[in-house]
Design a protein around this nucleic acid. Structure first.
Lengths: 358, 358
DNA sequence: TTGTATGCGTTATCAC
DNA sequence: GTGATAACGCATACAA
């Protein structure tokens, strides 16, 4: 079964020419309804599927969407993949996975992708600066969407969150619980969202009429070890903070470890809030209050946006071929999407009523 | 830059014909060394990369390796991806991602994959029975490797672990700590490794001269909730077990939750051992003693095995074309690979000396 | 509405 | 060793 049939075979079986088969394959309108039906039947009957390579060659590109992810270590990657897959798999496209690592940066992969002419679009999940390469690709006409990267400078479409607002909400929660000395453990300075989260911290304090005490702001690195290190510094102070805002959940885990080492109780002695809501956060002891980062939704929205862009480009290039110039009632597509975040209140912050504890 | 050059352009620039360019592209031996060098230079200079679709069409298949994963929820998927990516990205192949869900089973995806003629091989990460479809694919000549699935009946290549031996080691550890009443929370019956892990449990008891007490074997479902439910049953017994072997880490988390609910201390009152060593297990309180499941290594080995199989097939088909019949000194490739596991001793089992606690 | 002819970029089969 | 030329399977401008 599923012998390698070609449109030629289908054409013969249906008593038409290859062209007509190709037309129904591409949903062209100018095909007689009866003929279309007949061809469709033959296809169904024989389980025909067009050869992708041939289609790709003729059309100039393959039905592939590149997904560029950093070293696949983050829990977030799984979620993003899920979101992307959920959308893409309902379409004709396939996902082709590119992973980058420090040693092997994207530039190589991207060149290869473009040169071999395999993909029609690219989703890129980045945690460092957006490489100039992506901008180039975009300017050359390859649809590109950045995931989790609010690149206001670069004119690339992206989907992300408002890190500052989210961080602000987290800190405000601590303020509402009565805390006034709130420590902050920063993330890696080279990652853009680090700055935004710090800004959110500052803003929440300002809005509460408080000054930012530089002694309460320590430099972390988004790792467990970094968090542990900073927490020890906090705990060693004459007047330690009564609450800590950690720039991500891993950092918060480090704080938990340091606290346990020194017999400091969380949240009784020190309240703690993280950021990202990665899976372990529901299981650590005490469960971590944190900002839910909608990774899956980001993947979903990014994929949808990309599909829209691909579609638009196709429509545009078709028009151009047909001599039309001015876009008629062009559909406006937002190219920057900010998804909402929310605070997940668990036990580590000491709020009296906890919701969604698992 | 990187304008769309074809071998035709390269040929012109190097003063040769397309054929010769194609030959150096495919590393054919019958090309003059000087000519080859010249062509290679021109390619390098212009950053030429052959169009993949065209190559695929001419050769009959694309340089793509399918990776079939279940619903992308498991932490394990991330690790497997890493392992696979690490190997595949050093080759000419790309990874094309297929994800399956209960509603959308593989058969569709597989047919599509085969029919469209996109991939040269398939890696499949399964947690249920190996679908007959994969066997069909394999018998039709498509290299297939199963990941984390010891399918002794089906004649498919696979890489997995010895679940029984690993479970046995976990239970033996509890026995060595002096426990005699050891509860067991089973996984889903439809998943093959469930049975193996239970066998390991039984075997360890038998080797210690103990009988399996049916009252101490509860039916879980590999989820947190299932574990919690079973743990409550255990704790409600007149003489509860002094130790629990959970069939996976999520189940163990449920036990931890149930214990905390009821003020039962782990490991002081009940010792606990899990299975899989997913990332949160190092962070839960107390950190979980568990069997390390080498997901990443499985991915790596599976990818390598697949590449070997693809290569063998190519060599074979080439030989056949050239009229050779008998394989000369055929390289024997193991088609079944069992990777070692090990017990990661953390605090939940109550062992006095703990290693690798984070 | 349908068929014919040509091109997509590469590989492979021939000759030379 | 090298160069024409025919596939590979499909899409499409053009003719009918």
């Amino acid at each position: 079964m599923t012998e390698k049939l070609t449109i030629r075979d289908i054409a013969r079986l249906a008593g038409v020419s290859k062209s007509t088969v190709s037309r129904v394959l591409n949903a062209h309108s100018n095909v007689d309804a009866a003929t279309r039906e007949r061809i469709l039947n033959v296809m169904q009957e024989h389980g025909f599927m067009p050869n992708a390579a041939a289609t790709g060659l003729a059309k100039g590109h393959n039905p592939l969407i590149g997904l560029l992810v950093p070293a696949l270590t983050w829990e977030l990657v799984t979620d993003v993949l899920q979101g992307v897959a959920a959308v893409i798999e309902d379409t004709q496209y396939e996902i082709i996975l590119y992973s980058a690592s420090p040693e092997k940066d994207f530039s190589f992969i991207i060149d290869r992708m473009l040169a071999t002419n395999m993909a029609v679009g690219l989703l890129a999940l980045l945690h460092t600066q957006s490489p100039q390469h992506l901008v180039e690709l975009h300017e050359r006409g390859l649809p590109v969407v950045l995931i989790n990267h609010v690149a206001s400078r670069a004119n690339l479409p992206w989907v992300g969150i408002d890190n500052a607002a989210a961080a602000s909400a987290a800190v405000r929660h601590l303020l509402d619980l009565g805390h006034r000395r709130i420590g902050c453990i920063l993330g890696l300075p080279e990652i853009p969202c680090t700055h935004d989260r710090y800004q959110g911290y500052c803003q929440a304090l300002h809005e509460a009429g408080l000054e930012v005490d530089p002694a309460l702001v320590l430099q972390g690195d988004y790792t467990c070890e970094g968090g542990r290190h900073c927490a020890r510094q906090f705990f060693a102070m004459d007047t330690p903070p009564t609450a800590i805002f950690a720039s991500n959940d891993l950092t918060a885990y480090g704080v938990l470890q340091a606290a346990e080492e020194q017999g400091i109780r969380i949240p009784e002695d020190v309240a703690l809030v993280g950021f990202d809501d990665i899976p372990p956060s529901a299981h650590v002891q005490p469960p971590l209050t944190t900002i839910h980062h909608p990774f899956k939704e980001m993947g979903r929205h990014a994929a949808q946006l990309l599909l829209t862009l691909i579609n638009q480009r196709d429509v545009y290039s078709n028009r151009r071929k047909k001599g039309q110039v001015a876009p008629v009632e062009e559909q406006i597509t937002p190219s920057h999407i900010i998804l909402p975040t929310h605070l997940v209140v668990r036990k580590s912050c000491g709020a009296t009523f906890t919701i969604n504890s698992i």
